[in-house]
């Protein structure tokens, strides 16, 4: 299954009439199948909004988003769910506090009428690096990193080909961040996933992404390959500044 993402003139505004705020004035970029594409930029630059538009969590946008050559709006809901999934920023807020891991993981299987619940759950739990006895735990019985692994397992259990990652490590400890990133790298290699990853950490981009786009106030200023980070080969002044600041920060450490 190919799952390249094409975004053309994506625009969205919140509110109505003169009070409306245009968050995305017109975003264009494309992600190739099997690629890891990063979206970086400062807070409020519309990175997460792009993900919510692609996943149809927010559906009142204009423009065109297509996955694998098909318009997202034309893909039936259940099929779309098996095509793309999302991992959220905060593992403390993205797992239902009253549902055990078993419920969390078996719900999507029930919705999609898939068989072999037990086997699928065990396999996905092992894939994210946990043991099968986590199946009967509740979120409050797990650490942040374990929760995020369960959140990743939940995203993977429907075997999507496109994973939207909304700052999947920024709510975690530094040591746990590395574990989760390595897990994501491994899963991509094993399953041939396409990643679209929002982050504001250029070190994460450097570690994982093939290409990345720098966003500023809802617009993509520049799309750069990973190699552009080291020598700061950005041409747009804002992208140069951002990469420069990041390199300086890392040099200081």
């Amino acid at each position: 299954m190919t799952s390249n993402v094409e975004i053309r003139n994506l625009s969205i505004s919140f509110g109505e009439g003169p009070a409306a705020v245009k968050v995305l004035p017109g975003v264009n970029f494309s992600v190739e199948a099997g690629e890891c594409f990063g979206l970086v930029g400062e807070s409020g630059s519309g990175k997460s909004t792009v993900l919510r538009c692609i996943s149809m969590l927010t559906d009142f946008w204009q423009g065109q988003i297509s996955i694998g050559g098909r318009n997202v709006r034309d893909i039936p809901r259940l099929e779309r769910c098996r095509l793309l999934q999302m991992v959220f920023q905060d593992p403390y807020g993205s797992l239902h506090p009253r549902q055990s891991v078993r419920t969390t993981l078996s719900e999507p299987l029930k919705i999609h009428g898939l068989d072999d619940h037990e086997g699928r759950m065990r396999r996905v739990i092992r894939d994210v690096g946990l043991t099968a006895d986590f199946i009967d735990r509740f979120p409050h019985q797990m650490s942040g990193g374990q929760r995020q692994r369960i959140a990743i397992a939940r995203a993977l259990i429907l075997e999507p080909s496109l994973l939207l990652l909304d700052e999947p490590t920024s709510a975690l400890d530094v040591s746990v961040q590395a574990e989760i990133l390595n897990l994501l790298v491994r899963l991509r290699e094993e399953r041939g996933l396409t990643y679209l990853m929002v982050t504001h950490d250029l070190a994460v981009v450097d570690h994982m992404c093939d290409r990345f786009a720098v966003m500023l106030r809802g617009e993509v200023t520049e799309v750069l390959p990973r190699a552009a980070i080291q020598g700061n080969h950005a041409t747009h002044p804002y992208a140069r500044e951002l990469i420069g600041a990041s390199l300086e920060y890392e040099g200081a450490l």
Binding site: S55, L57, R77, L78, R80, C81, L84, Q85, M86, F88, Q89, D90, G93, S94, L95, H96, P97, E107, P108, I111, H112, A151, R154, L158
Partner: peptide, 13 residues
């Protein structure tokens, strides 16, 4: 508006 509700919607619920 919680993320776990968004996650449930993404799973097709």
């Amino acid at each position: 508006k919680a993320d776990y509700i968004a996650a449930a919607r993404l799973q097709g619920a």
